[in-house]
Nucleic acid binder design. Structure first.
Lengths: 204, 204
DNA sequence: GTCTATATGTAGATAGAC
DNA sequence: GTCTATCTACATATAGAC
């Protein structure tokens, strides 16, 4: 692909991220994306064929951009992964736009026949697997933990990051995304290693 | 309001919850809601005036339905609130429809000028306040904890419940909503009372 | 209170000129 | 590669008959 075309592609993708983040993928229109990219909606369709295809490329684009940002620095495994997730939360607190695209599109994806659904199913499956692997390494060092607990903890760590993003987007001054994510991840990791008292015990 | 009219209202609201849950509030149409309620879209508008107003009444309806379900049994304060949240997670695992409406609409609400946004801002503010109050009672019994930690923990508990719902909706067999919620809430509550080691200490 | 008919707006996609 | 023009489809909302 020619460099000029490649730049146009990138510009359209950036515009699409912006618009899908602001309006959602259903409400965001090709015309608005085109305007931000400096062309008409017909031009956008020339590059991406259809709105659905553009959406899928937006989702793939961020993964690619994330990897590029890490340079050849691969995502760490083992206990370092937890620190990496906390660093991600700190980074996300500086880029509400990207956070909003993912929050809106991931929730939209559970609706009927949404084109982004396979992407998010796969994404969460992979991420949960990574976190489970990190827990296995950690527990191997420090003791034995049931498989159900590790599965629950892995899902919970991703969940708390997503859920805090939603509250933070709604009211940025009321939620400290970075600090709350760090506290929650730490609490869940510690909860796996040292179960602690049951909730019931706190009542009377 | 006459009883027959009231029943029609309820029937339309049920249909709207169903459709907004399946398609989102943007993609869900008045025609589909009307069909499920046994009338035409003009009939729906006769009852609710506009689609936007219907959406807002759907959001209010669930709160009202939740309260009715609890009978005159008010939402508990203090440490019992944590057990109540766990019970809610168990109940939610039996009603994917309701969970989906809230997951989809809450994320949609962060988009530009979404009519449901004030509702969700308010909802989270109130819920965080309830959880913070529960922590204060708990910490009063068991020791001193910083305000920032309590705020972070309150947001995190709501966040983990929401985030687990998303993963569970995407892949119900891969995530145990009830069990994972219980584990995460317990871990975060214990994290407030007994901080435990920092994440950094687990590396090397 | 519900219908049919219609007004009005806007979306995504296509065709063909330049 | 980008444009204008147009097609087709479908949405919300209104008007007025029954």
């Amino acid at each position: 692909m020619r460099p000029a075309t490649q730049r146009k592609h990138a510009k359209i993708l950036q515009a699409a991220m912006d618009v899908f983040g602001s309006k959602g993928s259903t409400n965001g229109t090709l015309a608005e994306i085109a305007e931000q990219a400096g062309m008409t909606h017909a031009g956008v369709l020339h590059h991406f064929g259809s709105k659905q295809n553009l959406l899928l490329e937006v989702l793939a684009y961020r993964d690619q951009a994330d990897v590029a940002e890490l340079a050849d620095q691969h995502i760490p495994g083992g206990p370092e992964l937890f620190l990496h997730l906390v660093r991600t939360a700190f980074a996300n607190a500086q880029r509400p736009g990207i956070v909003q695209v993912y929050t809106v599109l991931s929730a939209e994806s559970v609706t009927d026949e949404h084109p982004g659904r396979p992407y998010f199913e796969d994404r969460y499956r992979v991420l949960r697997g990574d976190v489970v692997a990190a827990f296995r390494e950690l527990c191997g060092q420090q003791g034995v933990t049931s498989m159900e607990t590790v599965d629950a903890a892995a899902a919970a760590i991703l969940a708390v990051m997503d859920g805090l993003q939603l509250q933070w987007l709604l009211e940025p001054t009321a939620v400290d995304l970075a600090q709350a994510s760090e506290f929650a991840i730490r609490s869940i990791v510690n909860g796996v290693l040292h179960p602690g008292p049951e909730l019931r015990s706190y009542v009377e």
